[in-house]
């Protein structure tokens, strides 16, 4: 029957629309379902594995574990890390290769974690920071070893 089909069409169409409206109406009257995080006031605690930027571990005596072996520099796909080495004179008078400046280009980094994996001495790690925006891109080029820091004893 044509007319029955017509009415059925209208009925099915209208019920499908009303069901949708009931769902949105449900969310309208249930503000508890809101999932908005109000960012600057409420800051999410990021998990410890979150890859925000590469930082170098320093202990309380301002000592790091980086020997300047450039394993991370070689592992990096984007030439994010530049390591400048110098020669230290050890107490027994020998020359020893050591880290001078650890340059890290945050603007080039894709947070792939390869440098952290490659590091044989566990000197660098990923920090959980994420607010990296700056006004000048040169600020994104960082030196990771703190001024005056030196190699931790016993790290080869």
């Amino acid at each position: 029957m044509f007319i029955v089909d017509y009415i059925k069409d209208v009925y099915n169409g209208v019920t499908s629309l009303l069901k949708g409206m009931r769902l949105t109406g449900y969310y309208f009257v249930h503000p508890k379902e809101i999932i908005t995080q109000e960012y600057p006031e409420v800051k999410q605690v990021l998990p410890e594995r979150f890859k925000g930027e590469v930082v170098m571990r320093h202990n309380e005596n301002n000592e790091h574990r980086c020997t300047g072996c450039t394993a991370c520099e070689l592992a990096c796909p984007n030439a994010t890390i530049k390591i400048v080495t110098k020669f230290d004179i050890t107490p027994d008078g020998k020359k020893k290769k050591a880290l001078d400046v650890f340059v890290y280009h945050l603007e080039l980094c894709t947070m792939c974690n390869l440098c952290i994996v490659a590091c044989p001495t566990d000197a660098i790690k990923m920090a959980q920071t994420f607010e990296h925006s700056v006004y000048d891109r040169t600020e994104l080029t960082k030196v990771l070893n703190k001024p005056g820091s030196k190699l931790m004893d016993g790290v080869e």
Partner: peptide, 13 residues
Amino acid sequence: KVSAYMQIRKGPN
């Protein structure tokens, strides 16, 4: 505000 609440957001605040 209506759209925000239906879309489980807070809207302008």
